[in-house]
C-alpha cells in the first residue's frame, strides 16, 4: 500500500460521508421540482444534521446500552461501505476488504443493529418497523444476489474493483443481461433504502412507515447519526449501481491527474441517478406492504432472466 493509495482511500471515505447529505438534498430538490413545489435549499440536510447535533438528547427511561450503541455501529458500517465501494478510484486498499457479498453482509449488520435497537424500548411502532424492515430485506437479498450474479459471470469476479476494470477498460459491448440486472438493481435499491414505492421516507403515518418507525425513539445526536447513515447508505447504493452499470471515468490511484475528471464524472453520475430516482418516486405510488413481495419478486425474475440471457447469447 503506497502513501498515495492511502491518502486517496481516506479522501474517498471522507468524500462519501461529506457528500451523502448533499445527494439527499439534491434528490429532495428534484422531487420538489417535479411535484411543482418550491424546493428546499440543497444544503437543507446539512442544516438538519447540525440542528440535531446541537439538541439535547432525550433517551427513553428503559433504553439499554444496545440502543445507545446502535447509531454508532450503523454509521460506522456505512462509512466503511463508503470506503469500500469504488466511487472515484479503483484499486484502493480497502476495496479488497470486501467483495459485493461481503458488502451485502455489511449492510445486513447495520440493519440488524437498527432492527434490534428499534425493539429495545418496547414500543409497538418499533417492533412493527423492525419486522417489516427485516422482511423487506429478506426478500430483497435473493434479488440482489441474482443482480450481482450477472456481472460476476461476465467478469469472473465478485470484487467491485475487478468488475469496474473489466467493464470500463474493455471494448464497448452491449450486454442485454446487464440491462435486466440494472432494472432489477434499481428496484432493490428502492426497497433497501426505504424509497417510495416500498416505504415513504417523509411520512410518520403509523400504518405505512417502515424505516421511520424504527428510529422513532431516537433524538439529538443519535438521530443525526441514523439520518446521516441513511443518506450515506443511499449514496453507497448509488455508488454500487454506478460501479456496476456506468463504470466509466474512474481514476487509478497511480495517476493523480485523473482525479478531477473522476470527481466530475462522479458528480454528473450521482446527479443523474438522483434525478432519475426522484422521477421514479414521483411517478410511483406507495404500495401496500404485502405488495412488496410481488415487487421484489419481479426484481428477482428480472435478475434471473438477465442471468439466463447471459448464458445463452453472451457466451
Amino acid at each position: 500500500m503506497s502513501v498515495s493509495q492511502a491518502v486517496l482511500q481516506l479522501f474517498q471515505g471522507v468524500l462519501a460521508v461529506a457528500v451523502a447529505p448533499l445527494v439527499l438534498g439534491w434528490l429532495n430538490q428534484c422531487r420538489a421540482w417535479l411535484q411543482n413545489r418550491r424546493a428546499p435549499s440543497l444544503l437543507q440536510p446539512y442544516r438538519v444534521l447540525i440542528k440535531l447535533l446541537r439538541k439535547e438528547m432525550v433517551l427513553a427511561t428503559n433504553a439499554s446500552w444496545l440502543f445507545r450503541l446502535a447509531p454508532y455501529v450503523v454509521f460506522a458500517c456505512m462509512v466503511l461501505a463508503g470506503a469500500i465501494v469504488p466511487l472515484v478510484a479503483t484499486d484502493l486498499p480497502f476495496a479488497r476488504a470486501a467483495d459485493v457479498i461481503a458488502l451485502v453482509g455489511l449492510f445486513a449488520l447495520a440493519r440488524v443493529f437498527m432492527a434490534l435497537a428499534a425493539m429495545d424500548v418496547g414500543t409497538a411502532f418499533g417492533s412493527l418497523g423492525s419486522r417489516r424492515e427485516m422482511l423487506i430485506a429478506a426478500l430483497a437479498e435473493p434479488a440482489l444476489l441474482m443482480v450481482f450474479f450477472t456481472p460476476a459471470l461476465i467478469s469472473h469476479s465478485t470484487a467491485l474493483t475487478t468488475i469496474v476494470d473489466q467493464f470500463s477498460n474493455g471494448a464497448l459491448q452491449i450486454h442485454p443481461s446487464m440491462a435486466f440486472a440494472a432494472v432489477a438493481f434499481v428496484m432493490v435499491l428502492l426497497a433497501e433504502n426505504a424509497r417510495i414505492p416500498v416505504d415513504n421516507p417523509s411520512t410518520h403515518l403509523e400504518l405505512t412507515m417502515v424505516h421511520e418507525a424504527m428510529i422513532l425513539e431516537y433524538s439529538g445526536r443519535h438521530l443525526a447519526l441514523m439520518d446521516w447513515a441513511h443518506a450515506l447508505k443511499l449514496t453507497v447504493y448509488m455508488g454500487i449501481g454506478i460501479a456496476l452499470f456506468l463504470p466509466w471515468g474512474m481514476a487509478h490511484p497511480q495517476n493523480w491527474l485523473e482525479l478531477p475528471l473522476a470527481l466530475a464524472a462522479l458528480g454528473v453520475k450521482l446527479a443523474l441517478a438522483g434525478a432519475g430516482l426522484a422521477l421514479l418516486e414521483t411517478l410511483a405510488a406507495k404500495m401496500r406492504i404485502f405488495k412488496v413481495p410481488e415487487f421484489l419478486g419481479m426484481a428477482f425474475m428480472l435478475a434471473v432472466l438477465g442471468m439466463l440471457v447471459h448464458f445463452l447469447v453472451e457466451t
Binding site: 459491448q173 452491449i174 442485454p176 443481461s177 428480472l302 432472466l305 440471457v309 447469447v313 453472451e314
Partner: peptide, 13 residues
C-alpha cells in the same frame, strides 16, 4: 449481433 441479442432479450421480457 449485440443489437439482435438485445432485441431477443426484449422479446423474452
Amino acid at each position: 449481433g449485440q443489437v439482435i441479442d438485445l432485441l431477443a432479450a426484449l422479446m423474452l421480457l
